[in-house]
Write a protein that binds this DNA or RNA. Structure first.
Length: 364
DNA sequence: TGCATTTGACCTGA
DNA sequence: TCAGGTCAAATGCA
């Protein structure tokens, strides 16, 4: 990870810690000087952070901007390099940027079992509109891998992509790797419905697309929640370092140690890449993107990532998950219901503990 | 005619 | 150097 990014995170973390202290001093017995000092330190910490973000020259800044651009393509479209380069250069730079994004975009994998006779082949319906843009024979794989991207890529700059790979062992199983977050409007529109219904099982009348989409969003949210946990873990580590506490860092090298319940088989991701990307993405998404929205879903449950569409598959295999089958029996989605709110890091009585979500506006 | 898919070429990173 | 990922022209389809 970039040193400057680490410094930036430390600054923000320090600000958070100072705010925590300030909160403890928000009683009549505390001196005004102490509070003023803490406020000054908090402001200084955030000013430093902002100046780092505003500084366009540093490598960390540009990489952070890249990251932000990945998540807010429509916003960053206005800052296109077209303004000061030729079309050829622009195309070239965009092309290079695509390859750069390969490494930095979040991704998670699901396995989807397709029953024989369902007629379901190729791209699996998750509620989004995907357009196939490529197919490639993969070394050692019996079946080619299909590459799909969001239909609204050009219209709305949505950078979400997915790869569909048929399993060698069981051709009825498709391994679907999602990359990037949907920023297109179909996401937000359906997301409202999903968020509104996230605390209850999907209604029987819910369309297949919405249910599939709900499943997709829930998986995406799970992925992000895990990111957030890891982010908090690293921040706690930073705290420990600052306070001279000894923190076992090897946990950071083993995601399963940290998140034993997280069962996505991130098959082809190098561990270091996962850590870095998850942390950066978590930091950006949780502290910038999600700053103005509460966390509706926090399924911190142990759950298999194996999503069977077999009608005979027992829903109890998925813990809190439940199965919904369409009348056509073409595709059954296993949708994991969110856990009770007690599992959420955001409690009713919010307290500034190290796990406090950094994205709460009241904090500022 | 417009949109989606196919497929060979090209680019990047390991 | 090669495998994986993406582009874009050609093609198919409604």
């Amino acid at each position: 990870m970039d040193m400057e990014l680490m410094v930036l995170i430390n600054e923000l973390t320090q600000g958070k810690e100072l705010a925590k202290q300030l909160r403890n001093h928000l009683n009549p017995s505390s001196s005004k000087e102490t509070r003023d000092l803490l406020i000054q330190q908090i402001l200084g910490s955030y000013e430093k952070s902002l100046s780092m973000l505003n500084c366009g020259g540093g490598a960390a800044s540009s990489s952070m901007v890249d990251e932000l651009a990945d998540h807010f393509p429509s916003t960053f479209a206005n800052i296109s390099p077209r303004s000061d380069t030729s079309d050829l250069d622009y195309k070239d730079q965009c092309h290079k940027h695509v390859y750069k994004k390969r490494k930095t975009m979040s991704r998670w994998t699901e396995q989807v079992k397709v029953c024989s006779g369902t007629g379901l082949e190729g791209p699996l319906d998750d509620g989004y509109c995907w357009r196939k843009y490529g197919q490639k024979d993969i070394l050692g794989a019996s079946f080619p891998r299909g590459y799909y991207r969001c239909t609204h890529r050009h219209a709305q700059g949505c950078l979400a992509t997915k790869q569909v790979q048929r399993s060698d062992e069981d051709p009825s199983i498709f391994e679907v790797t999602y990359r990037g977050r949907h920023t297109c409007s179909q996401n937000s529109q359906l997301a409202v419905a999903v968020m509104a219904s996230s605390s209850v099982p999907p209604a029987a009348g819910m369309s297949k697309e919405k249910r599939n989409h709900q499943h997709y969003l829930i998986k995406q949210q799970e992925h992000e929640d895990q990111n957030q946990k890891q982010s908090q873990e690293v921040m706690m580590f930073n705290f420990g370092s600052a306070a001279g506490l000894k923190v076992k860092t090897e946990d950071l090298d083993n995601r399963e140690d940290i998140f034993p319940s997280f069962s996505f088989p991130l098959t082809s991701i190098e561990a270091d890449n996962v850590e870095e990307n998850m942390f950066i993405e978590s930091f950006i998404e949780n502290n910038f993107m999600d700053s103005f929205s509460p966390k509706f879903i926090s399924p911190a449950t142990s759950e298999s990532n194996y999503f069977s569409v077999s009608p005979s598959h027992n829903m109890n295999n998925f813990g809190l998950g439940h199965s919904v089958q369409t009348p056509e029996s073409d595709l059954t989605e296993i949708i994991s219901a969110p856990n009770s709110v007690t599992n959420s890091p955001i409690g009713e009585d919010f307290d500034f503990d190290p796990n406090f979500p950094f994205d709460n506006l009241e904090f500022f």
